[in-house]
Design a protein around this nucleic acid. Structure first.
Lengths: 110, 110
DNA sequence: TTCATGTTTGAGTGATTAAGCATATACTCA
DNA sequence: TGAGTATATGCTTAATCACTCAAACATGAA
């Protein structure tokens, strides 16, 4: 029995904004994109996303705090994986919207 | 003939991140929510979102720059309206994801 | 013209945060 | 035990950005 179409409370909007903020960093998007094909270790992610190990570790922590990725420790390494499949649709939606805007802009110049 | 599943370039990811950043502010989400029922003037939006006119005007500019809202001037007033319908699905997706996470968290405590 | 209203914009302040560097923690193996 | 590897974390710096106040701009009426 899901509620429908009622305006969100201020606290809910803060949560939504927070979720968007987590996705508002190119490095974190690179990490998520690298994880699209499956789980990876921090070191592998650092290499894939062309970042320092410390920085990547921090970003992964942010993603994990938001519940977007999961953490699995195995020996020395820590493997991260996408935990929220809605990420895929989210990125598709945004990319599609940006594409559409670009095409509309392109039409202005014929 | 849309391209599919290819990894996004760094510049594309920056654009996507920018789009998310625009949505990562509670005040802007409040404005968008107020606009869900149709176009509104800046003054009306300021009242609906409980913000100062100056601040609301700036946020509307940010939303307009991102192509999320459109601007229509009529006499003294300026009316804004949602220009990118993907916003609706975007918010639904994020809200659904947050809901799901909260329910999962709730289950942990039975 | 002058006045009033609605909107935008300039300047300044404070808060948030990404990134870098160094260090600390956790684990494995010899 | 100690050395080596993978990851996380203090701490600092620089940049970004939301917000406020005041002033500017734009439009319409008297």
């Amino acid at each position: 029995m899901a509620k429908k179409k009622s305006p969100l409370s201020d606290e809910a909007l803060v949560l939504v904004a927070r979720r968007f903020a987590v996705l508002a960093e190119p490095m974190r998007l690179r990490l998520l994109q690298a994880l699209f094909d499956g789980e990876m270790s921090v070191g592998a992610l650092a290499e894939a996303a062309a970042g320092t190990q410390a920085n990547v570790s921090r970003h992964l922590q942010t993603l994990a705090d938001a519940g977007l990725v999961s953490r699995r420790k195995e020996g020395l390494q820590v493997f991260y994986a996408i935990a929220d499949p809605s990420i895929f649709q989210l990125c598709e939606l945004v990319c599609g919207s940006i594409d559409q805007q670009n095409q509309a802009r392109a039409k202005v110049f014929q």
